[in-house]
């Protein structure tokens, strides 16, 4: 936990400096008699930097507790994969259409979530995709991409 906190406070300090850099480059265009567009961001950047320093000092001097916190590579890989999966789902949807891509997406997800029965996966993916499409697109009038298929 101690090591993690030290790294986190350093990352946060970096983030605060990056934010401060962005604030410094904000265009000036302000109304008279009130605080400018940069005021609140500056205050926030200051508070974040201050808190990160406190966390840093606190962690350096804190006893190394027996709580272990880590982000194993397997989990990191898992999240990254999930994000890529969802991103490609959205990208492909615009081209092929919601229902088609959703069936594939749901198949992969159901398999990942532990289902191993092909019939179950297929039946579930197809019905869910069609139901969600009918519900949102037809009933709620949400314009889902229909692409070249559906």
């Amino acid at each position: 936990m101690r090591k993690a906190n030290i790294i986190i406070s350093l990352i946060l300090l970096g983030f605060a400096s990056f934010y401060a850099y962005l604030i410094a480059n904000l265009p000036a265009r302000d109304l008279p008699n009130t605080l400018g567009a940069a005021f609140v961001p500056w205050v926030l950047a200051g508070i974040l930097a201050g808190l990160s320093v406190i966390l840093l000092i606190h962690s350096i001097f804190a006893a190394n507790g027996n709580q272990k916190v880590s982000l194993p590579g397997r989990e990191l890989l898992g999240i990254t994969f999930l994000l890529i999966l969802i991103a490609s789902y959205i990208k492909l949807m615009e081209f092929f259409g919601f229902v088609t891509v959703s069936i594939v997406f749901l198949t992969i997800l159901t398999w990942l979530a532990g289902s191993r029965k092909p019939v179950e996966i297929a039946a579930f993916s197809v019905t869910t995709a069609i139901l969600v499409y009918l519900l949102f697109h037809k009933f709620f009038q949400v314009q889902l991409p229909t692409g070249i298929f559906f």
Partner: peptide, 19 residues
């Protein structure tokens, strides 16, 4: 079962935030 619920939640979150 989670293997059914998880995909449903995921797709609802994606479509829900889109909508």
């Amino acid at each position: 079962p989670s293997r059914i619920l998880l995909p449903i939640i995921t797709i609802l979150c994606i479509v829900g935030s889109y909508s």
